[in-house]
Amino acid sequence: MSALASHAVTDLAAYTTSTGEAFQFWVLGTVAVIGALCTILMKKAVHSALCLAGTMIILAVFYLANGAYFLGIVQVVVYTGAIMMLFLFVVMLVGVTAADSLKETIKGQRWLAALCGLGFAVLLTAGIGNAAITEFNGLGAANAGGNVEGLAALIFTKYVFAFEITGALLITAAVGAMVLTHRERTERALTQREMAERRVREGKHLPPLPAPGVYARHNAVDIAGLLPDGTPSELTVMRTLRDRGQIRDVSSEALKDLAALEQRSAERLGRDDREEEAAK
């Protein structure tokens, strides 16, 4: 990456770029577009987040290629590192829901959205094509004293007011997030004794709920325990997983496995029998 960046430094002022940068642009640009498309087309939010992270890293490379060294690093650290991880946390917190289905529910929404997006892209492209962009001055002069130093000089002189306001905004955002996610208890939490008494009063599930898992083969929490007739009991799985529909049904598999096991053990036993007979 640093090689690419140093290459860009040498040739920032030209109207056309070096072949290396052109190659880099076409290859990574294609990947970035694919990543963006995957972001909006992937069914699972986790996949979308990963695609987006990839796109962002490519954008970081482009920043470096354009002489924005500080921004390139910040992009990697803040965006890809912090923000995307925050996204992933929330995805895990919220979990997979029915909203992830790509089936459109609003009539005509998808067509309209595609039309608008496409039209907008065409218009922007036409606008850029029409704009009188004759020459790229390059950042050679601006970055002469170092990119970070140049930025710092601007931030603390020309943009100091905006910088201070941004600081206030960050504080506010932090406090806002805390306020939004903090839940005030409105009633006292039930003690274990009270919960036990309530269970007795209601008269169901006096003992603890049955544990998940099939003892012989699976003890994962997302696998329902089997009832005596071999059917899975949803009661054994925790509610969150039930709500998300993330229960793995292994009843038929378990029975099949059991049959196979019996067969195998029978074979082994039979062989053992034969061996015993042979021994006799």
Partner: peptide, 21 residues
């Protein structure tokens, strides 16, 4: 490229229902 990515993002806002996406 920026225009293209922007349009893709805008389309995504319109077609996805998961608030996180």
């Amino acid at each position: 490229l920026a225009a293209l990515l922007f349009s893709i993002g805008a389309t995504g806002v319109l077609i996805r229902r998961n608030a996180i996406v």
